[in-house]
């Protein structure tokens, strides 16, 4: 394991150390996906790339939005916008657990002093039609990461299996830095000429989005946009693979998947607005899942998804 047992001093230092660590393990360090998603798993670098036979190793920060979790910036550790750190390696390496433990060491968690445990937690995403087995990782009784071996995504068996890690960055950082309220957490170095806390950056936005998500977002518009996204996703996937302009085989999986992501986020907003009943809820989740599944079906027909021209030709 690495030697950086000195404590990080800020939120961003923890992120930077994770980036450096996973880069050193050979992961491609990607940037966040430029859309509203509920979790890092939604990034196509995880959802789509976990499908098919092509090897993959990527790590990235993903800003994530859960409209129902908004607390106007008052709750010490609950927000409608937060960051996840996501690692996906396919096929999952035999030493995946050790690699993970190395990352804890990299951010200053000395496993000789702490009690790190792998506690059963099966992961399932009804909207992605995905499931896997793994653990939540506890450090001194606190959940610091999710660790999952993907078994199915979009209704497809994962072959090979991807190993996925998700770190809830705020919670993890608060723990490492010894902070009780997320808004008090130093975002950059506290010794910097202009020190900024998490609250300096996000308190106001939490208030604004909480009000928006719970009370102001126009539900008719959201419903309409949901329908639009749903229709567009299906429409894009219905095109013939042969592109008349380029003469190439181009299946528009990612543009279609963007619409699936949109539909998912719109559903979350509608949920926060309280206009979805218990019975409707299941129906909406089913509709998003149908989109995710259609995208997965399409992705495995592309080269990144393991499709080979010569095999079919």
């Amino acid at each position: 394991m690495s030697v950086s047992t000195d404590k990080p001093r800020s939120f961003q230092e923890i992120i930077l150390r994770l980036q450096a660590y996973w880069a050193a393990q050979g992961c491609a360090i990607l940037q966040p996906y430029d859309m509203e998603v509920g979790a890092g798993t939604f990034h196509p670098a995880t959802t789509l790339r976990s499908l098919g036979s092509q090897p993959w190793a990527a790590a990235y920060v993903q800003p994530s939005r859960r409209p129902t979790d908004g607390r106007y910036g008052e709750n010490p550790n609950r927000m409608q916008h937060y960051y996840q750190y996501q690692v996906l390696i396919k096929p999952s390496p035999p030493a995946m657990q050790d690699l993970y433990l190395g990352s804890l060491d990299a951010i200053g968690i000395d496993t000789a002093l702490h009690d790190v445990r792998f506690v059963e937690d099966d992961w399932e995403s009804p909207t992605l039609g995905a499931w896997g087995l793994g653990w939540e990782v506890w450090c001194d009784g606190m959940e610091v990461s999710q660790f999952t071996y993907f078994q199915q995504v979009g209704g497809h068996d994962c072959r090979p299996v991807s190993g996925e890690l998700t770190y809830g960055l705020e919670r993890l950082a608060m723990y490492v830095l010894g902070i009780d309220h997320v808004m008090d957490m130093p975002f950059n170095d506290p010794q910097a000429p202009i020190p900024l806390t998490y609250g300096d950056i996000f308190r106001q936005t939490e208030q604004e989005y909480s009000r928006h998500n719970f009370d102001a977002a126009t539900t008719e518009m959201l419903l309409r946009h949901f329908e639009d996204a749903e229709a567009e996703c299906s429409r894009l996937l219905a095109f013939e693979p042969a592109d008349p302009n380029s003469g190439k085989r181009i299946i528009m999986v990612h543009p279609a998947y963007d619409q699936c992501i949109k539909a998912s986020h719109l559903f979350n907003l509608l949920d926060a607005r309280g206009v979805i009943s218990v019975t409707e809820r299941q129906a909406y989740i089913g509709r998003v899942r149908a989109l995710a599944k259609a995208c997965a079906d399409a992705f495995v027909q592309t080269e990144a998804g393991g499709w080979r021209a010569e095999v079919t030709a």
């Binding site: 096929p91 999952s92 390496p93 035999p94 995946m96 896997g132 087995l133 793994g134 071996y149 078994q151 994962c158 072959r159 090979p160 299996v161 190993g163």
Partner: peptide, 13 residues
Amino acid sequence: MRWGSGSLRWVRP
């Protein structure tokens, strides 16, 4: 579950 590139199934790797 399965793991890595194998097809063996066990509760965890």
